[in-house]
Amino acid sequence: MITPSGRDRDAPAAVQSVVRDAERSWRRLGVPRALRDPVVADVCADLHAAYGQGRTPETVLGMTVAEFAEQVARENGWLVAWPMYGRLLASAAVGAAAAILAGFALVLPSMYLVLAAVGHVLVWAGSDAEGYRESSLNAGIVYAMYALFGVGFVAAVLTAVRWGLKAAVQLRQTLSAGAVLIAVSAAVSVPLAVAIGHVSRFSSAPLVVAAEFGLVLGLAGAALVAARAWALRLS
């Protein structure tokens, strides 16, 4: 039976292991599945046949799997800067999801705690508690916490991208440009999302919330793609 990746599922474990390692090397380079699958199937079939004649994959290759994978990649013209947009966005989505969950779990409760603590201190010091809720100090604390969340969000997204594209060329340039462009996208998308909130009277209707999140995350994704495209143009 042939798996979707082209590997022969009936092949012995030793063959599957070697082929899986080679495939992983190509995947890390960013070689699209449509290109690597036929080669995976090809190599798997040959190693399976050799195994049937009593030869182990290591003996047949005559070199390490990494060396073989690198030579095959070179001869196929795969040692190029692949855009890897799919993996870029998938990794970024993982980082964004983690940041949003952490935001709801940590930042929002922390913000309420900090606001309450500052309020208590002001009341203890004899200030007007009602006035504090409307004060610029209160607003400043709220915006500082949101900014903190924003920085954490960008850091989480870029960390996830760094992990997801660890073997990609021009990764450092992608991350640097991404940090700048995501900040720029947030400068555009967050006020727009707030405007949507104002217009909808801060409705929590799913459609409104989805529009706000979609706007911010969509522009952040576009910023990342633009950062990657820019980084590849430099190579």
Binding site: D46, V60, L61, E75
Partner: peptide, 17 residues
């Protein structure tokens, strides 16, 4: 002499391309 599949397969790939 000892010709490995690891040498021949990339060579075939080059010739095919």
């Amino acid at each position: 002499g000892e010709v490995s599949y690891g040498t021949v397969y990339p060579l075939i790939t080059r010739l095919r391309r």
